[in-house]
């Protein structure tokens, strides 16, 4: 009743009276694609992914080969100059993206799977279980961004599985909160009660009644968390706790060549621009998705 029915377009006019209604997240994707920012973000992201995947096949050297004097200026031999050990910067840029993608995406998947599961259970169970889950997640939330990962790295050393796990874990609280908030809203609707009333088991209610109704906020959250995963993985490499030398990695490259920022800025600038473009493109997609989701909500939020 809060929405003025007169301002809501004709029912059925949105998708046509007989048009089959797609799954929520598919619809969000389709609507997001209609926005320019999503297209720009996706194209950028795809381009960077191609570079990360196939760049190594066109690289002029191998990433660990010493090809010239340290910090050589750009020339026809090495287009972006050489780094602090005399390795080809272009080659290392072409090699250095894969780790960022692989680690970032894995961390996001881990965080999403655990966060969504916890959020669903907390939002549906309420009371004691809810309180317990959310309190524990509050504890995780208290460790700022990369600090949680650093804490565990300090004792276990900079291992990749640990970095991925910790970045995923640090996403958990926020993903769980978003999931829980959306779940609580859906569970409050009568169709969930109706399903419980005919005896549908809890697991099926969560999977078939609740989850399909919260898939778009989760999709948006996934996009957003992917951006932050990449930021955190790059940051960890930058402070020396991510990928370890002599690996080629954009974050690590900035760290290694930091001292030359005054004299040879492009050695640092190249990986900085790659990371910046990657996070901006991921965030453009996330923002497009979230705009599309708000649009969908407006059409269906009649109750």
């Amino acid at each position: 009743m809060n929405i003025d029915p007169e301002l809501v377009p004709a029912e059925g006019a949105v998708s046509g009276p007989s048009a089959p209604r797609r799954r929520e997240w598919v619809q969000t994707l389709v609507e997001a694609w209609g926005l320019r920012r999503t297209k720009v973000g996706t194209v950028m992201f795809a381009l960077l992914l191609l570079i990360a995947l196939f760049g190594r096949f066109v690289a002029p050297y191998t990433p660990t080969e010493f090809v010239g004097r340290p910090f050589s200026d750009p020339s026809t031999a090495y287009w972006l100059g050489t780094d602090f050990l005399g390795r080809d910067v272009l080659t290392r840029v072409l090699y250095g993206g894969l780790s960022v993608f692989v680690l970032g995406i894995s961390a996001t998947v881990i965080g999403t799977v655990f966060g969504v599961s916890l959020g669903l259970v907390a939002g549906y169970a309420r009371r004691v279980v809810d309180e317990a889950i959310m309190r524990v997640l509050d504890v995780v939330l208290a460790f700022p961004s990369v600090v949680l990962a650093m804490l565990f790295v300090s004792i276990l050393g900079p291992r990749l599985w640990l970095i991925v796990l910790m970045v995923g874990v640090s996403h958990m609280p926020r993903i769980a909160r978003v999931t829980r908030a959306a779940t609580v809203e859906v569970v409050a609707r009568d169709f969930v009660r109706a399903a419980a009333a005919v005896g549908v088991p809890r697991r099926k209610i969560l999977l078939y009644e609740v989850l399909p109704n919260i898939s778009s906020p989760l999709l948006v959250e996934f996009g957003l968390r992917l951006t932050y995963s990449i930021i955190m993985i790059a940051a960890l490499s930058f402070i020396g706790f991510g990928m370890q030398p002599p690996a080629a990695d954009w974050g690590l490259m900035i760290n290694e060549n930091r001292i030359a920022i005054i004299t040879q800025p492009w050695v640092v600038l190249a990986p900085v621009l790659m990371i910046g473009a990657l996070t901006i493109s991921a965030n453009l997609i996330a923002d497009g998705l979230s705009r599309a989701m708000v649009g969908i909500d407006r059409d269906t939020a009649q109750a």
Binding site: E24, F191, R193, N213, T300
Partner: peptide, 12 residues
């Protein structure tokens, strides 16, 4: 049968 038919039918 619930009060609001907007809330009692799963929109998906």
């Amino acid at each position: 049968i619930f009060q609001s038919p907007y809330s009692s039918l799963n929109p998906r």
